[in-house]
């Protein structure tokens, strides 16, 4: 089949060197990605964000062995925060499952719970910062603390963005906007949220070794 079409396209005796009009260049297959545009955009954005955090993490790992590095005990509340963030991701996931089943009530409960737990996480991070301050560990105290504040801060800012989005989704859902509409925004926001949970696990992991 394809041989015939190639012929039709002039790949026969008249084709000269350099005419790239072969099966690869001109198979005529035309595909867009199976991903909807907004989702594709989001994934690309997450790619950029991943590089952003990777840069911080690699800088951290490079700076870590230097002689002026002094470790400090990480506030225990971080463990609690980590659990809370994981739970919030799970809740949001549950809420997405419910929305696919058209369960308006249960969907909303999970959504509100997930959002609330996100808020608790941010509050917990704030408490961690306060704890450090009470111990006299400030941003410029030592590279270890500088990295701690900057990494948690960068993550927190992005999480705050996600929280604002979630709040908007909640408001829409509470106002009884069409489920379909809510579902698409919720889908995007949840993807973003899961991403930030994974980033936090990575950050927490490297912070613990410093």
């Amino acid at each position: 089949m394809s041989v015939i079409t190639e012929k039709v396209r002039g790949r026969g005796p008249d084709s000269d060197i350099g005419r790239g009009d072969d099966g690869w260049g001109d198979s005529g297959e035309w595909r867009t990605l199976p991903l909807p545009t907004a989702q594709l955009g989001l994934w690309l954005f997450l790619g950029a964000l991943a590089m952003f955090f990777a840069a911080f993490i690699s800088a951290y790992l490079v700076r870590l062995p230097s002689p002026d590095w002094r470790s400090f005990t990480k506030p225990p509340v971080l463990w609690f925060n980590t659990a809370v963030l994981i739970l919030s991701s799970i809740f949001l996931h549950a809420s997405q499952i419910q929305i696919r089943k058209d369960n308006h009530k249960t969907f909303l409960i999970w959504l509100l719970l997930g959002t609330f737990f996100g808020l608790v996480f941010l509050g917990g991070q704030w408490i961690a910062w306060l704890t450090l301050q009470r111990q006299g560990v400030y941003l410029p105290t030592n590279p270890s603390s500088s990295f701690f504040y900057v990494l948690t801060g960068a993550h927190g800012v992005h999480l705050l963005g996600g929280l604002i989005l979630l709040t908007l989704v909640c408001l829409r859902a509470l106002r009884g906007k069409s489920l379909h509409f809510v579902a698409s925004t919720l889908g995007l926001t949840t993807t973003y949220w899961h991403f930030l949970t994974v980033v936090w696990l990575a950050l927490f992991g490297v912070l613990l070794i410093g």
């Binding site: 690869w24 001109d26 005529g28 035309w30 595909r31 867009t32 990605l33 545009t37 594709l40 690309l44």
Partner: peptide, 17 residues
């Protein structure tokens, strides 16, 4: 640029074209 190139190509315009 990336999203547009991947998702908005018109009919018949494969990546190879």
């Amino acid at each position: 640029y990336i999203t547009t190139t991947l998702n908005l190509r018109t009919k018949g315009l494969s990546m190879g074209r």
